[in-house]
Nucleic acid binder design. Structure first.
Lengths: 338, 338
DNA sequence: TTGTAGGCGTTATCAC
DNA sequence: GTGATAACGCCTACAA
């Protein structure tokens, strides 16, 4: 870091800009905040001065004077961050950050220690934060919902059970049904599914979508096995499915990672994808394309989710009323497996 | 959010605590900041009052009055965040957040748009941030180094070429050499490597470590192919390696993901791991354990890296002098592949 | 449309 | 050891 020896000017303040432009601080403040009622000539002069001294508003002073925090917090439950390398997390953050970049809000992150939740609570309720976003996979991490009573909060994903909180999610059920219909329209009739955990909304909704589509088509929906969204569990479930002895020519898997697991056992049994069994996954993550043949799957727009979450939070903060649940559209990515 | 109707108390201030405790604001401030010269009886009374009104210091006011920012920024280059699902990123963030949780600093994140870098620059130099952390894979993203002249900065990973900046990294070369030595001590003599891109420090250092160990043992180091750290590139490199016709009984791969790629072709050729060819990877990420047989690899302590980065940054901010480069130790995780 | 002035919640410098 | 009292940099009635 540069030595603080001699020639260091102080960071420019409103005052300095005002002096240089020959106006009052109030006026400079107005142009900085885009208040319309400023004479354009003066505004121009002020802007010039701002550039000249390289002025940047002091966020702390701003927040203090305006009596409103200018940052929003992203809460990451500790349990989640323990999952080494979570793709979901990184993408949501990215979306959130992208959206906030165009606002005056700053994004800060806390990982919520389950050991001392009061700390996080105090941080959020201390008046230092305008709103909060909660990203987690597990329904148990909904322990923050009650804070919605005091500060705007938006969650990622539908909560388990009823809840009055705001959240954004994809329509897992509809997307799963769509994926299944693809299999059906391809002429498959013995369609199995590898479902996710039934204590997580995505697990529940995705199998429910599969059932929906199967019922529509009058097909048998008894071919189901469960996994926990991991690759290994997908392989095991596939083994059980095959072990039943019943014919299978189509497979809907609740996420791509389990689909990759299913691939391995399908292929070790000599079953060809998609000729013998067509498979479609869910999420469109890195597993979908790293597998061979590449997986046809439901695209889960995580970055968009992040953006939307941020957008809704800002709306909430600024008092606009918005819908409690917002679903963002998915799409089917047709590749080689179905 | 709760309606702002009637019964809403204002957020408690120092003033209110002072009144309740029957002391001056100055005294309350002292106990809040752990200034030693406070009578213990009075301090106790103040603490009680703090609890009573549920007081939380206003960070903006604090920052303003103390003339020092209380947040540090994590910069994520846009190019990096585009990599869908980056495990490295999530873990570094986690480490950073964990460390900062015990300090008075708040962590905020910006994704640096390459379109308008001035924006990020202004944010960092505007005096609103005490220091910054840069996490990226690519050497090109070192465009922030020059800011080190104005504000404390710490980077993740050794920069390409010389640089006067602070960074924390693992000793890639030593670790790679260690991994290779394991192969050698297991009696392998025809050891190939799948190296990473040679324009990235980890790519460079890891192959260099392999060469080191091979030279030590007097082994031939001509069996090398390059990948770009992706699974697919690992598979391709393996194909080329095998295509050379030379015998191979050991393989060091510059990261686990490429190792997973190599697995697929090794196995489709009927080569057994580790019997026919023993393989060791690098990173110890999720690929290492999702592959069969599980991969022996170098454990890359990413979370620790994050913690260390934050620690160094805080030291820098507080004026302590610290070493410019700090390397954190790796370890070899012996599983089934070597 | 512009300027004046008070205040936001803390810290920090003084006296006491 | 404790308490006034100025800042800190900015916003915002209110007045002009």
């Amino acid at each position: 870091m540069k030595q603080d020896t001699s020639g260091n000017r102080p960071t420019p303040t409103l005052e300095m800009v005002a002096a240089l432009a020959g106006v009052s601080r109030a006026t400079v403040s107005r142009v900085v905040n885009d208040v319309p009622s400023v004479d354009e000539d003066i505004a121009a002069k002020v802007r010039q001065a701002i550039l000249a001294v390289n002025y940047t508003p002091n966020r702390a002073a701003r927040s203090l004077a305006s009596r409103r925090p200018n940052s929003v917090t992203l809460i990451v439950p500790e349990s989640m961050s323990k999952v080494f390398a979570d793709p979901f997390f990184a993408s949501v953050v990215q979306g959130v950050a992208l959206y906030l970049a165009d606002t005056d809000y700053t994004l800060n992150m806390v990982i919520a220690s389950e050991a001392k939740p009061e700390k996080t609570r105090a941080f959020l309720l201390g008046g230092n934060v305008a709103g909060a976003l909660v990203v987690s996979h597990h329904a148990g991490d909904r322990s923050w919902t009650h804070l919605s009573d005091y500060i705007p909060m938006v969650f990622a994903g539908r909560p388990l059970g009823e809840s009055a909180s705001y959240y954004v999610d994809v329509d897992n059920e509809a997307a799963a049904a769509g994926a299944t219909r693809l299999l059906i329209s391809n002429g498959r009739t013995n369609i199995a599914t590898i479902a996710g955990p039934q204590d997580m909304p995505p697990g529940i909704d995705r199998i429910s979508g599969w059932r929906l589509a199967m019922a529509e088509a009058g097909l048998d929906d008894s071919l189901v096995e469960y996994g926990d969204f991991t690759l290994a569990s997908g392989a095991k479930a596939m083994r059980r499915l095959l072990g039943s002895g019943k014919p299978i020519d189509g497979l809907f898997v609740a996420n791509d990672q389990m689909a990759a697991g299913a691939y391995t056992v399908l292929q070790e049994r000599g079953l060809r994808i998609p000729q013998d069994v067509a498979v479609v996954g869910f999420d469109d993550d890195s597993f979908a394309t790293s597998v061979n043949p590449q997986l046809t799957t439901v695209h889960h727009p995580i970055i968009e989710m992040g953006k939307k979450m941020a957008e809704i939070l800002v709306d909430l903060i600024e008092g606009k009323d918005t819908a409690r649940v917002t679903q963002i559209p998915t799409s089917l990515v047709i590749r080689e497996s179905a």
